[in-house]
């Protein structure tokens, strides 16, 4: 999914600009850095309500495609500066995390989970 489409679906403001052709294959929503480090895949956009310096550093380490800040929160100037310097696009939406993730998922953007048919069979037992 193109980042522009993500931006439109979430009615998001662009805080750090992105390439018009940039896109993401998966998305992950979390406010816990170690969970992000464990479960996130490449070509991913992160949705979080915690736009901290450490979150940007984690995004940089994982080569994330973009960060979407939810719940109407605004990153501080130093966080924006570091995101710019590291070419990490940042979007801000007023939507809460669950709703933002739900909208993207409903439009076809997949999650990072490997919970697929096998998991469903397990659940049905």
């Amino acid at each position: 999914m193109k980042l522009q489409e993500i931006c439109d679906i979430l009615c998001a403001d662009v805080i750090v600009r992105f390439d018009p052709d940039a896109e993401a294959i998966t998305a992950c929503g979390s406010d816990l850095i170690s969970d992000i480090l464990r479960f996130i895949k490449s070509e991913t956009v992160l949705l979080t309500g915690l736009p901290t310096l450490q979150m940007i550093k984690a995004a940089q380490l994982l080569d994330l495609n973009a960060i979407v800040v939810v719940r109407g929160k605004q990153p501080t100037k130093d966080v924006i500066e570091i995101a710019k310097n590291n070419k990490i696009p940042v979007l801000c939406t007023k939507l809460p995390l669950f709703e933002a993730c739900g909208r993207l998922y409903a439009k076809g953007l997949q999650g990072c989970s490997e919970y697929t048919a096998q998991g469903d069979e397990h659940r049905a037992e």
Binding site: L32, I33, S34, D35, L37, R38, L50, T52, Q54
Partner: peptide, 15 residues
């Protein structure tokens, strides 16, 4: 409150 404390640090390293 800073986003740490998931209890995944050492498990992530081992993983």
């Amino acid at each position: 409150a800073l986003g740490f404390g998931a209890g995944m640090g050492l498990p992530n390293i081992r993983h």
